[in-house]
């Protein structure tokens, strides 16, 4: 199973992505998906711009997916992360994991998101009526990694 990774400007369709992952596969008993979206915490967010490190981003996401594949018996793995200018409610990231049983699919999706949050080279800049500001990294994201220590 080769994880499928995309870093793109365009939106994605979660139904299409799940269907594509299942094509010609009969060993999948569980599909888990996570979608991260742009939220507006009542601050009057007008847009969010995502910058990334093009030469590194896909490679880093592939490293994370490979690690997940080594830990859990995955039959499918799809990661899409958008960049560019996004608006409240827009999709940012999609992670789909598929396995014979649900626990592996749940855990692998969780693991991928935790590592993506701390390792994938993306940076968010929020624009409100008061101007634009880089989003600060979250300590809780670093702490979330600790539970995956072997």
């Amino acid at each position: 199973m080769q994880p499928q990774i995309s870093v793109q400007l365009d939106d994605f369709d979660i139904g299409n992505e799940i269907n594509q992952l299942k094509v010609d596969k009969h060993d999948i008993g569980a599909v888990v998906s996570f979608v991260g979206t742009v939220r507006d915490l009542a601050d009057g967010l007008t847009s969010m711009t995502l910058e990334h490190y093009p030469a590194m981003t896909e490679a880093e996401l592939a490293r994370i997916a490979k690690e997940a594949k080594e830990r859990w018996p995955l039959e499918g793995c799809r990661i899409i992360h958008r960049f560019g200018e996004l608006f409240p409610g827009d999709n940012i990231v999609l992670v789909i994991t598929a396995s014979a049983h649900r626990q592996a699919a749940f855990d692998a999706a969780n693991f991928i998101m935790d590592f993506l949050k701390t390792n994938a080279p993306f940076w968010k800049k929020e624009t409100t009526s008061r101007g634009a500001k880089w989003v600060d990294a979250n300590d809780a994201d670093d702490k979330a990694l600790e539970r995956w220590q072997k």
């Binding site: 991260g36 992360h81 390792n119 080279p121 993306f122 968010k124 880089w134 600060d136």
Partner: peptide, 26 residues
């Protein structure tokens, strides 16, 4: 060279070295 590294990592003249703040994707 597109892989996370620490400050004690050796560098050569052909390397690509990137500096950035803690990441905030997802």
């Amino acid at each position: 060279n597109q892989v996370h590294a620490q400050a004690d990592h050796p560098v050569s003249d052909t390397d690509e070295i990137a500096f950035f703040p803690p990441v905030t994707g997802g």
